[in-house]
């Protein structure tokens, strides 16, 4: 058996989700190759080659792949799948964007966002915002899977896989990259951060959210997250959203500040190791999952907490 793993990267560096996806592929079994599709990705390929348990790293480069256009990744991966039994992609926005295209082309029903591999045809995945956990068996010959990063430990470094360059097919030409606005931040990336400080609607404005949360995040070396309500209201950018339809996180410490704890939010953070909730409503559902709940006005409590650290 052989598995093709799609690398998570931004053309410059390898994302954490890659080694986690390799772990899921290892649980599936067989030889593991990593595909680095992008442009100017030599550093990414080098890092991927160091993940232990990897047979080889395939590198394909083109302008369309640089922007990770789904049509281009599909055209690249579908023919490669002749040589593989499974395709594992991290459940990042890129993985979610491309994997179903590949599945459809191969006439396979995809398994999304798996949290465990039971056997070569049976996988475990959350459904209904994580309120139910489904064990599901597929009858498709090839397996197309996206992997929830928080459910797998990253495979260790220590490998020295061969790096091989392959041709990138010219894309369909029906889609083109126009522009991107990427958040620049010195903070840790949300999905791999050890600590997260997360703000909700109660913060009231972008200024207040930054004023209240940034000093605390600075002290803790934490990433900043947000609820959907805070993002919708424009207090935080879209890539801060934690939840069922945002990012799934599981840090050592998650501090929910002025977040009520709707099921959609809990779906994204309830596997955190220690949850702290600060909310002025003692009935807020967030307290049902919090290890430590502080009933207080956040505008007093958070600065006080920051000072105490």
């Amino acid at each position: 058996m052989a598995v093709l793993v799609l690398a998570d990267h931004d053309n410059a560096s390898l994302g954490d989700a890659t080694a986690k996806t390799v772990s899921a592929a290892a649980a599936f079994g067989g030889d593991i190759d990593i595909l680095v599709a992008g442009k100017g990705v030599s550093a990414v390929a080098e890092a991927a080659a160091k993940i232990s348990g990897v047979r080889k790293v395939l590198v394909a480069e083109s302008d369309a792949l640089e922007a990770a256009l789904a049509e281009a990744v599909e055209a690249l991966v579908v023919p490669l799948m002749d040589g593989y039994d499974a395709f594992f992609a991290p459940a990042t926005t890129t993985g979610k964007n491309v994997a179903p295209r590949i599945a459809a082309k191969l006439d396979v029903m995809q398994l999304s966002d798996i949290i465990a591999v039971e056997s070569a045809d049976t996988f475990v995945r959350p459904i209904y915002a994580g309120n139910a956990i489904e064990t599901v068996q597929t009858s498709d010959a090839k397996k197309i899977v996206t992997v929830r990063g928080t459910a797998f430990e990253a495979a260790a470094d220590g490998g020295s896989a061969a790096v091989e360059t392959i041709d990138a097919p010219t894309g369909s030409g029906k889609s083109a990259f126009v522009s991107e606005e990427l958040a620049e931040s010195d903070r840790p990336e949300l999905t791999s951060a050890k600590r997260i400080v997360s703000g909700g609607r109660a913060l009231g404005s972008e200024e207040e959210l930054n004023k209240v949360l940034e000093p605390l995040a600075d002290k803790l070396g934490a990433a900043i997250g947000a609820s959907r309500a805070a993002v919708d209201a424009g207090y935080a950018p879209n890539d801060y959203q934690v939840g069922q339809t945002g990012k799934i996180v599981a840090p050592e410490l998650y501090i929910a500040i002025g977040i009520s704890g709707a099921i959609q939010h809990l779906a994204g953070m309830k596997d955190s190791k220690i949850i702290v909730a600060i909310n002025k409503d003692e009935e807020a559902p967030i307290f049902q999952v919090a290890d430590y709940g502080l009933v207080a006005d956040l505008f007093n409590a958070v600065p006080e907490l920051t000072d105490a650290l």
Partner: peptide
């Protein structure tokens, strides 16, 4: 193409404790 083998409850997370104040937290 898929057969549901089983659907189970997620592990329940017990509510912890309420703390008095920031210092206790």
């Amino acid at each position: 193409r898929l057969t549901t083998v089983k659907v189970t409850e997620p592990p329940v997370r017990e509510a912890g404790e309420k703390v008095e104040d920031v210092a206790t937290l």
